[in-house]
Write a protein that binds this DNA or RNA. Structure first.
Lengths: 345, 345
DNA sequence: CTGTTAGCGCGTTCAA
DNA sequence: TTGAACGCGCTAACAG
């Protein structure tokens, strides 16, 4: 037995006024008798009235829902960004419609359409690894929906971009290895068409250059961001090439390397020094503890939310890029012990 | 410069037919000339038409959005449940509106109202720790919105409940400690008004009972689920009471205990054997590796999604309770080494 | 098979 | 300050 939902018309009938009056009273700021407003509010409350935001949005053309597209929700980094976004968006009266792409370009395309169909007030996105074309964002631009990219971004799309300082993180990380005595440093990279991995490679190269170490492309392992890839790279590159340091673009591949090296009775940091990226929770639990670059995912989420809220209402998108500072956390895998070094941007 | 969104009326004008015809063609299953349908689809595509689901839902009374309320998105367990839910819901044509409560009862109440206002087709919820009253769900029931609870549930609300087999997990875990020689086993419990923690306590007690070990309430530490609480409990209970085994309702408090015990030069598992709950990723990284009860969060999400989809369309809610099997993962902290024991339900 | 009509619930004119 | 009327975009009933 389903009770009918109560509408402003029901309230109006109950009180002997018109729906317009009720609507105005509920809206708050429009002109209506202050005693009538009180009565409306009281009757609405006791009738259990819940405004129909669908009808409201349809009529007003405004929506309080913001869409968010992420590769995967169940990743430490992304779930924390989401959390940071929500922390600011909810108090501001917005809700989050979240869609995962599972790193598939086609899913990303569909997700954007879904959000458009839901008439979201804005779209937040971090691109999937697969995504190389961005034509499906033309419609977002055309319809004037604010678009904020974070972490994995492209300059091919106008609008705000919130990114980690990948270059600086990589630079500091590699410099740290050099300072601790590494001469032949390998880099476990990701897919280089993705900005974050390209930037980390750039930072790595720049550190070598500044230290006068020649860049050796054969020491760069592409698509090496998962655990298994890290393990595999040890046998294929690290040992044969007599590598004494690894800067991994991902904590997972760094972990894989640690496991494999321990298995082969290599000493860490004695024989090989290692640093990762992202400062996953396990970094301080693994043996030896893993030096890593900390990303402030929650803060990134906050900035993303701020950017969306600012974009809404503005006519023209602003293509500003905001860098979230990163921090090198030195641990034992690189020969340091519980020291903290703050990198300055 | 914002282009106007194209509507079915635009398409209709373009083609010289009525909006109804376009609507029917787009809907797919209703009677319409197959050649007209082709033309409509083509024109719609080339005009970049995106249906307005707000208008559609308002008119049809049906919504393809499902609301989900969780304590926190950025927790390993919850983010994986969400992922599991999405995995089934998206292919079925539903979207997820996610709201966090941050463990606050008031936020939970607001979240439910927000979802109701958004006219979601169903609501999925795991209650906040604070939540003790459930009166705000009466409106959900009254409006006939299917309600599925998971993990943290209450029987005070009708509808499907998807839960872990906390009792069995606790039972097996405690039995395992007993089998490995523990005589005085402490239990790090959570807030006992929350079903999951009460059930884990019950399983612990039942294991003791079956083994003929007297239950000692002073060995139960309430609200001991975070790292610091685990550390603190070592000094306050574990050592003074000569405890030789700890069954923790949370991996985090188990971790805290490990840290503190190591700090005090106690041997694990030599002096104290420890097992946790949830099998967080760090469980296999910490030293010694942590025995824990694995919850299949993704599978739970799948079951939740299934239950919601089934509930939608049904007139009356069914109060079925589904148990997701758990598995004891034996590791070194309890004196076992890389063994697996599957618990049978 | 297609057009006509009506209305989902709300917000915003224009009058009074 | 309030009421009447209209329409956001779409679906659904009823004709034809």
């Amino acid at each position: 037995m389903v009770k009918k939902r109560v509408t402003i018309t029901d309230i109006a009938h109950e009180m002997g006024v018109t729906p317009s009056t009720v609507s105005r009273a509920l809206a708050g700021n429009t002109r209506v008798g202050s005693n009538t407003r009180q009565r409306v509010l009281k009757v609405a409350a006791q009738m259990g009235y819940q405004p129909n935001v669908l009808a409201s949005s349809l009529r007003s053309g405004r929506s309080d829902t913001i869409g968010m597209v992420v590769p995967r929700i169940n990743r430490h980094f992304f779930s924390h960004v989401i959390s940071g976004v929500e922390a600011l968006l909810n108090p501001a009266g917005f809700n989050l419609l979240i869609i995962q792409t599972h790193e598939r370009e086609e899913h990303e395309r569909k997700a954007v359409h879904t959000l458009l169909r839901n008439r979201v007030a804005g779209i937040i996105i971090s691109h999937s690894v697969e995504t190389k074309g961005f034509s499906h964002y033309q419609m977002v631009i055309d319809e004037g929906v604010p678009l904020v990219q974070f972490d994995r971004v492209t300059e091919q799309i106008v609008g705000a971009r919130i990114v980690n300082d990948n270059f600086l993180g990589a630079l500091r990380s590699t410099q740290h290895l050099i300072k601790n005595g590494c001469k032949r440093i390998a880099h476990f990279a990701g897919a280089l068409h993705v900005n974050v991995y390209q930037e980390r490679l750039d930072g790595y190269r720049y550190a070598l250059e500044k230290a006068g170490i020649e860049y050796d492309p054969s020491l760069v392992v592409e698509n090496c961001i998962i655990q298994e890839a890290g393990q595999e790279a040890v046998a294929r590159i690290v040992l044969p090439k007599k590598v004494d340091g690894i800067f991994a673009a991902s904590d997972l591949s760094a972990l894989g390397a640690i496991q494999k090296l321990k298995e082969l009775n290599k000493a860490i940091p004695g024989d090989v020094k290692i640093s990762g990226f992202a400062n996953e929770p396990f970094a301080e639990m693994v043996e030896p503890t893993l030096t890593s670059v900390e990303q402030n995912a929650f803060e990134m989420g906050n900035q993303v939310a701020k950017a969306v809220i600012e974009s809404i209402g503005k006519d023209e998108p602003v293509s500003e890029e905001i860098h979230i500072p990163v921090r090198l956390i030195q641990r034992r895998s690189s020969g340091s012990d519980a020291l903290l070094m703050n990198s300055v941007v």
